[in-house]
Design a protein around this nucleic acid. Structure first.
Length: 153
DNA sequence: GCCAACGTTGGC
DNA sequence: GCCAACGTTGGC
C-alpha cells in the first residue's frame, strides 16, 4: 500500500464537500501536470491512502484522510469544451489526462496547518514542505503519513 | 536544444 | 492582491 497527498482549494472542492458527496466518493479530475498525471495513471492503486490538503486556504492545512476506491482512468472532463480544464489535445481515443476515485475516511478533529507541519522534525523531508513545491498529487512516506494521522486525531 | 515569454500555483 | 517558483510553449 502506498501513501499520497492530494491538494485541493477548498473553494473548489473541500473535504466537507467530499463528506456530502454520494457515498462520500468523488473523481479527482482536473489534474493537468504530467508528473501528477503519471502518479494517477500508473502508481496509485485501490486501497492506497490519501492525505487531503486544503491549498490556498485560511489556513492551508492537511484536513483529513481518504482512500483510493478506483484507480487510473481517463479524465473525461478534458474532452468537454465547456469544462474549465478542457484540453483539445486529449481525446477518448488517446487520453492525455487521468484521474482516480477517492472516498472519505476521516476528517481530522484538528486540521494541521502548514506552519505547524514545518515545525515537526520528522516531516522535514516531505514534498509538501519543499520550497517551491507545487505538485498537486504527491507521494508521502509511510512514516510521514502515520505521524500526520496521529497528530490529526 | 536553448531560452524568453507566458500562464499557473499557492504561500503570504 | 502580490509575487516567487515552476511548467509549458514556441521561435530560432
Amino acid at each position: 500500500m502506498k501513501y499520497w497527498l492530494f491538494k485541493s482549494e477548498p473553494s473548489e472542492f473541500s473535504i466537507q464537500d467530499l463528506a456530502k458527496a454520494k457515498r462520500k466518493t468523488t473523481f479527482w479530475d482536473g489534474v493537468r501536470n504530467y508528473q501528477a498525471r503519471n502518479f494517477l495513471r500508473d502508481e496509485i492503486k485501490v486501497g492506497d491512502r490519501v492525505l487531503y490538503y486544503h491549498s490556498n486556504a485560511d489556513p492551508s492545512a492537511v484536513v483529513g484522510v481518504a482512500k483510493v476506491v478506483r484507480e487510473g482512468y481517463p479524465d473525461h472532463t478534458a474532452w468537454d469544451p465547456n469544462d474549465k480544464h478542457y484540453d483539445e489535445k486529449s481525446s477518448a481515443d488517446n487520453p492525455r489526462w487521468f484521474m482516480v476515485d477517492i472516498q472519505l475516511e476521516t476528517i481530522f478533529k484538528r486540521p494541521l496547518p502548514l506552519p505547524e507541519l514545518r515545525e515537526i522534525k520528522s516531516l522535514k523531508n516531505m514534498e509538501l514542505l519543499r520550497k517551491g513545491s507545487r505538485l498537486s498529487v504527491q507521494p508521502v512516506r509511510k512514516s510521514e503519513f502515520d505521524r500526520i494521522v496521529k497528530l490529526g486525531g
